[in-house]
């Protein structure tokens, strides 16, 4: 019988990734229908605890995975961005459902057409709403991504300094088209005098 050594030689990155990938703490940013499917994923039949992600923490300071479940309205974007900035690195984002990923059926004046215009998203989950199995698959995909690309001091994020989303739709309007809307005053949101 071979004697097992009482030590293990490996890369520090690999160990850190193993720990991070298997204890993702989600911040459930559940706004609409997908939030109920998220609850179903967490409850007894599907049981996301099997993948180490059952510790839903509603305080962003303790989380490393943001789960945006449901459509994000114009009024909600500043809240979403503030919560994202409050989460400590390393952090990841899953965009759950058609509405969060692309606006879905809600192509209206109030719904943003995909949160990737405002946040860096790692995994998209299609479906309206996605089945719990799909969400679990997304968590597994994210675990693989972390295991493959992660580093102990989050070096992989330092190069990603540019906007990665789809073409930005911010536009500057003519003075006579301007109106009072929330947001940055240098873009289409200039106040009419």
């Amino acid at each position: 019988m071979a004697v097992m050594p009482d030590f293990l030689i490996t890369k520090l990155d690999w160990v850190a990734n193993l720990a991070r990938a298997n204890s993702l703490w989600p911040m459930p940013f559940a706004t609409a229908c997908c939030g109920i499917e998220l609850m179903a994923t967490a409850s007894s039949r599907y049981d996301i605890a099997r993948f180490g992600s059952e510790a839903m923490r509603f305080s962003p300071r303790q989380c490393d995975l943001m789960l945006v479940a449901g459509r994000v309205a114009m009024k909600m974007v500043p809240v979403l961005q503030r919560i994202w900035l409050q989460m400590p690195e390393p952090k990841w984002c899953i965009s759950m459902g058609a509405c969060a990923s692309s606006g879905g059926v809600f192509d209206t004046y109030a719904v943003v057409q995909g949160i990737d215009r405002f946040l860096p998203v790692d995994v998209y989950v299609p479906g309206c709403p996605p089945r719990p199995e799909q969400l679990i698959r997304a968590v597994i995909d994210l675990q693989e991504k972390i295991q493959a690309t992660g580093t102990v001091n989050a070096r992989e994020f330092t190069d990603r300094t540019t906007y990665e989303g789809p073409t930005s739709m911010i536009k500057t309007l003519e003075l006579d088209q301007t109106m009072v809307v929330p947001g940055d005053f240098n873009t289409a949101t200039r106040q009419r005098d």
């Binding site: 706004t31 609409a32 449901g70 309205a73 009024k75 809600f106 209206t108 109030a110």
Partner: peptide, 11 residues
């Protein structure tokens, strides 16, 4: 309120 206003009636 209004943080989830999605324009159902307009749609």
């Amino acid at each position: 309120i209004g943080y989830l206003h999605s324009g159902f009636e307009k749609l």
